[in-house]
């Protein structure tokens, strides 16, 4: 077991800020923290099981049919998580909208299947999937947190008991920077965060 396979996806090979994969859902669903958590859970489920299955079948699936085989496996997993979320987490299902079925074409999933799971052991592939999913979840949640706080003045989590799930940020809730809730705000923030992570990486490299 190589623990580096788990940790590399969190910072060193962060799928969003370093490898720059799966930006479409990152920009699309990062309007609320609860959406980011739901999307991250979906990506974790699909990436973990697709990496495990593809790694287990790597000696059975011939090279010439690996793309259709991977797509069938990934699309089936996405449809399963879509049905489960629709039934058991309808609010998250409604919030994620079209981005949930679009996990099928999320570059992180097919990218990790191609670049890692198809040539590594099941255990390493599972660790890679968990690490990449944590990296994706942290990036997506960070972007969603900044966008929601600035753009709506709220932090939307999940309702538990008497807690409605929505935390209001004083002043910002009445005076939000509305551009942050819209697509230009997502692109601006992504640009600033990418620049920050590049600057950190360059400083570290000396």
């Amino acid at each position: 077991m190589n623990i580096k396979e788990l940790t590399k996806g969190i910072f060193k090979e962060n799928p969003v800020f370093i490898i720059v994969l799966g930006l479409c859902p990152v920009l699309g669903v990062s309007t609320q923290v609860s959406n980011a958590i739901g999307m991250s859970a979906g990506v974790l489920f699909v990436l973990l099981f697709s990496n495990i299955i593809i790694s287990a079948l790597r000696n059975i699936i011939p090279d010439s049919i690996h793309i259709p085989a991977y797509i069938v496996i990934i699309a089936s997993l996405v449809t399963i998580i879509e049905m489960l979320m629709h039934a058991f987490a309808p609010a998250v299902y409604a919030a994620l909208g079209v981005y949930l079925p679009l996990i099928v074409v999320n570059c992180i999933i097919l990218g990790r299947a191609e670049a890692f799971a198809s040539s590594n052991t099941v255990l390493d592939s599972a660790l890679d999937a968990i690490g990449m999913s944590i990296g994706f979840a942290l990036s997506l949640t960070l972007i969603a947190l900044i966008r929601e706080v600035l753009g709506a003045g709220t932090i939307t989590l999940f309702p538990v008991g008497s807690f409605s799930g929505v935390i209001e940020v004083p002043w910002l809730v009445d005076n939000p920077f509305k551009v942050m809730a819209l697509a230009p705000g997502a692109l601006l923030l992504m640009g600033f965060l990418k620049a920050f992570f590049d600057w950190k990486a360059m400083r570290k490299a000396g």
Binding site: I65, I80, M83, H86
Partner: peptide, 28 residues
Amino acid sequence: KYSLILLSICAISTALLALTNAITAPVI
């Protein structure tokens, strides 16, 4: 051989989807 491999993957996927649908459809 390739066709049979793809067919097997599709058949297993379909069975799993049918099972999930049977569980979730009434709840939805």
